[in-house]
């Protein structure tokens, strides 16, 4: 399958601060790729490198088959970008900004523009300074989604949107995917990621720590086990892949790495199992594990 974004070993320093520390990121053409990580992990920096706004210090980045820095103008005709914090010109109306950005990209579809304005319930007559945070975000989204482009780069695009508008946003991203567009979606909203993304990359301290489909990522995580045994647990805690064993009489709770689950269950049935509950890892746990200790 063709790749739209191929980044490897990307390094970016701001003075003594290392914002990207050997980042790898692959986005396949036609997929919605979730880009996750705690605040300050380097998501926006990576996106700005991909947009040719920042120059990487080391590593390679390819975007739609071109060099993001050298071929910036040609590549930007084929993509649309929504920053996490859309700032508007105070004296331009929202409609003017949408048209301007669309035309600078090479034109936008007026029918789709009207449809999006309607769906997002956005008044295009207001001046930039009069919009709330959520409405500024909508201006950016309409400008991007109304463009006929191959790639959408969305940096926390739904911050400030209400749940109804979140629904509208998800509808349009699915629509974009159906039309064969590729989407790189940086987000903190797990439900949004779960609903939209084919694959995700989790980034921490400027480095990708996990990448794959959500099912694959789940597989890598620990399962929580709550079991009542016929006898004492013995040396359960010494088994490979078993963590956080808490003993309460015959009732034992522990976490186990998913590949080691089979071995642990065999050991338990050797003792005798009276009741057993297994809980697969939730997305929250998955992300929290990666988010915890970020920046340390």
């Amino acid at each position: 399958m063709d790749t739209s974004i191929a980044v490897s070993g990307l390094v970016k320093n701001f003075g003594r601060v290392r914002a990207l520390d050997g980042l790898d990121l692959t986005v396949r053409t036609g997929e919605v790729h979730g880009f996750l990580g705690p605040n300050g992990a380097g998501k926006s920096t990576a996106i700005r490198v991909l947009l040719g706004l920042l120059r990487a210090d080391a590593g390679t980045a390819r975007l739609l088959g071109g060099d993001p820095w050298r071929d910036a103008v040609a590549l930007h005709r084929r993509l649309a970008y929504v920053p996490g914090d859309v700032t508007l010109w105070p004296n331009l109306s929202g409609g003017e900004v949408i048209d301007l950005l669309g035309r600078l990209r090479g034109g936008l579809d007026p029918a789709r523009r009207a449809e999006l304005l309607d769906a997002f319930e956005l008044d295009p007559r207001k001046k930039g300074r009069a919009y709330s945070k959520g409405n500024r975000q909508k201006v950016g989204l309409v400008a991007a989604l109304a463009s006929d482009v191959e790639l959408l780069i969305l940096d926390e695009p739904t911050s400030g949107l209400d749940p109804l508008m979140e629904e509208v946003f998800q509808h349009w991203v699915r629509q974009a995917k159906r039309e064969g567009r590729t989407v790189l979606l940086s987000s903190h909203i797990l439900a949004e990621v779960e609903a939209l993304c084919d694959r995700v990359t989790i980034i921490r301290n400027g480095r990708a720590v996990e990448s794959g489909t959500l099912a694959e990522l789940r597989h890598l995580q620990r399962t929580s086990v709550d079991v009542e045994l016929a006898g004492p647990p013995g040396r359960l805690a010494d088994l490979p892949g078993v963590h956080d064993v808490r003993v309460d009489g015959n009732r034992i709770r522990f976490d186990v790495d998913t590949p080691a689950l089979d071995g642990a269950l065999r050991y338990l049935t050797g003792i005798g199992v009276r009741s057993l509950t297994c809980q697969p890892p939730t997305l929250e746990q998955l992300f929290l594990r990666h988010y915890e200790g970020a920046g340390r």
């Binding site: 004296n91 109306s93 003017e96 048209d99 301007l100 035309r103 295009p124 007559r125 207001k126 001046k127």
Partner: peptide, 16 residues
């Protein structure tokens, strides 16, 4: 009070 602006940009507003 601030005034509202046009809903659609004039055709000329198409370049840096």
């Amino acid at each position: 009070a601030p005034r509202s602006g046009p809903a659609v940009a004039a055709p000329g507003l198409a370049s840096p």
